[in-house]
Nucleic acid binder design. Sequence first.
DNA 1: GTGGTCTAGACCACT
DNA 2: GTGGTCTAGACCACG
Lengths: 129, 129, 129, 129
Amino acid sequence: MFIKIDLQSEIPIYTQLQNRIIEGIVSGDLKAGEPLPSVRTMASDLGVNMHTVNKAYNFLKQDGFIQIHRQKGVVINPDGMPEVTSEYLGKFKQEIRPIIAEALCRGMKEEDFSTFCQEVFNNLQEKRG
Amino acid sequence: MFIKIDLQSEIPIYTQLQNRIIEGIVSGDLKAGEPLPSVRTMASDLGVNMHTVNKAYNFLKQDGFIQIHRQKGVVINPDGMPEVTSEYLGKFKQEIRPIIAEALCRGMKEEDFSTFCQEVFNNLQEKRG
Amino acid sequence: MFIKIDLQSEIPIYTQLQNRIIEGIVSGDLKAGEPLPSVRTMASDLGVNMHTVNKAYNFLKQDGFIQIHRQKGVVINPDGMPEVTSEYLGKFKQEIRPIIAEALCRGMKEEDFSTFCQEVFNNLQEKRG
Amino acid sequence: MFIKIDLQSEIPIYTQLQNRIIEGIVSGDLKAGEPLPSVRTMASDLGVNMHTVNKAYNFLKQDGFIQIHRQKGVVINPDGMPEVTSEYLGKFKQEIRPIIAEALCRGMKEEDFSTFCQEVFNNLQEKRG
DNA sequence: GTGGTCTAGACCACT
DNA sequence: GTGGTCTAGACCACG
């Protein structure tokens, strides 16, 4: 599991890290119950601040993607992933709305939108097969 | 055309304003060539600072959604909207990727994803008739 | 002599008008002693404000490109064009310096710079032949 | 690297600052990867407002001359300078055209034009040797 | 300590 | 009256 962070991106590093871990779970690289590097290790691997990794881990824990045990360390939630709650669905639509709006504004057809999303879907799951 | 901004949101006001204007174009509320309120008027309407509106307008101008005439004011680009360029497509996929990743992670089916997007599509275009 | 103004440009209209007139002189479209449309006529031709045309004419007069007579109207200076004074040369270098700096920074070779300038020279004088 | 701004000039301060920085890169005073003072430091050095410096930095970032790292600060683009794109070339010719037009109008010979440009070239690169 | 965002209020160029 | 520029001063997210 290689994690690559773009230090020049406008996206906060901790957000990038969260995304990479979620993508790792989706791709199958990270399986339920599997351990994640400690905050310290991850930070030194990525060359970022410990606080940054800590923040990412805490958000992921809060959403139920991982568990943090004082002794055992950090593991992908062995009880399974969080569900599609109505709360999440609200966030989902709020996030995707401006993206769809701009796409429509630029004349992207709904079919093309589906095609592009399909590509992303496949790309994320490609290692799963 | 009523524009509503959430001053408490963590999303920058100028970003919200950009999104609202793009949504206005998509819904048909704002038509090509139509004028937008001056920075000062819009600012006072929204209860925010002039510079915040200015920033939103300048980003929209940069992307080709609006034109800013030195003394005549601001209008929706009468020459039509920007296209789906390869550059835009890159941004599009980068933005939608983490959203799809989390959706997959939470077990959302691709069909459900399409359905939810469909809802957003319809919601954005509903006034178009 | 057709004059085309870009109302959406960031360059002030009066500056554009000055430039177009100077280009007209260079190309031979406007000859020494030849009359220019009155402020009123020019303004209505271009669809701009009288004050704007007035401003352009006054600057051109100040630099010695045109003469403004109360009765006879506006004419290209029949006594010839202003010279390359040391004052002008200072302005010239100040204006061209940042252009050359950016060109150098982007790796433009001095030969290429000359070639591009040559093109502009020819383009400006092409009607002269 | 001393940067001098003319607060009385009609050229916006942020534009002057952009030009000075580009000239610094050309002269070799500022090398790829080298850090630039923080917006606040630069602002206090120049005796101008933080936002003015910020605007200059953002334009330079947009054009690819510098990189802005969220918390690490500002550096000259270590990946090299932007190229001579066709878009840039358009801007270049548009900017240089009125300068050449006036020079021609005043009777400057093309050879003299070359000589004067040569001087500016040498002046900009003099520290490079 | 860094840049990002926002405010309040000012003057200027342009039309 | 419009946008463009600038100031002074504030709070926040990030690392």
